[in-house]
């Protein structure tokens, strides 16, 4: 959903696993929808880790643990690998996450998050390890993500890091603009390119 980003301060949901692939984020059988109903995808986020085969919540999975909640998902390295399905980003957005923090994101999924106004924040392995410890010690620990200044801060320890995002995408996020809005203004350049290459 298009929304304007500025400063986000929230508790976090920790998922300290590596290589979480998009088949886990949203299994293929939920990809048959023909609309972009984020609430449907959000309800099925991490479906097979979250519910057993009868549809009962699995109490040990973090999304079913009432101690944890918030706008920020914190995940182990190589988050979002595998399938290009944008449904994974819709599920994350639909569940209500605005930010995903990890030490490493898979390429396609990272773009999909950005295109759906979910901000992927890449931090160092040390920062991530400390953040997991902080959240384990205190589920109500808060993190501050400052988009204008491109910083992420573990408010319990005061540790802060700068994260990367290009100027164009930052402008889009802060002003709720998407790439198609931009591309539709470029028709002349595209037609010039086509004439040149024929």
């Amino acid at each position: 959903m298009k929304q304007k980003f500025n400063i986000i301060e929230s508790t976090c949901v920790p998922l300290p696993l590596e290589n979480v692939d998009t088949d886990q984020i949203i299994p293929a059988r939920f990809l048959k929808a023909t609309t972009r109903d984020e609430s449907f995808f959000g309800e099925n986020l991490f479906r097979d880790w979250r519910y057993d085969s009868k549809g009962n919540p699995i109490p040990t999975f973090v999304l079913n643990d009432p101690a944890y909640g918030g706008d920020i998902l914190v995940a182990g390295r190589n988050f979002g690998s595998g399938s290009s399905r944008e449904h994974a980003a819709w599920a994350i957005a639909g569940y209500g996450f605005k930010v995903v923090i990890s030490s490493f994101f898979a390429d396609i999924h990272k773009n999909n998050e950005l295109n759906n106004f979910v901000l992927p924040v890449t931090v160092s392995e040390d920062f991530l390890a400390e953040l997991f410890s902080t959240i384990a010690a205190d589920p109500k620990a808060r993190v501050r993500v400052d988009v204008p200044n491109q910083t992420v801060t573990n408010l319990s320890t005061g540790r802060s890091e700068r994260f990367e995002i290009n100027g164009y995408k930052k402008y889009c996020l802060m002003n709720a603009l998407d790439d198609i809005d931009y591309l539709l203004q470029q028709k002349d350049k595209i037609e010039d390119y086509e004439k040149k290459t024929i």
Binding site: I108, N111, N115, N166, I190
Partner: peptide
């Protein structure tokens, strides 16, 4: 290369896509 659905829409709308060069 593979892309997301928003990017599919970009290509349908403009035959272009916005990408960082790998």
């Amino acid at each position: 290369f593979g892309i997301g659905t928003s990017e599919v829409e970009m290509v349908m709308a403009s035959q272009c896509i916005l990408q960082q060069k790998p």
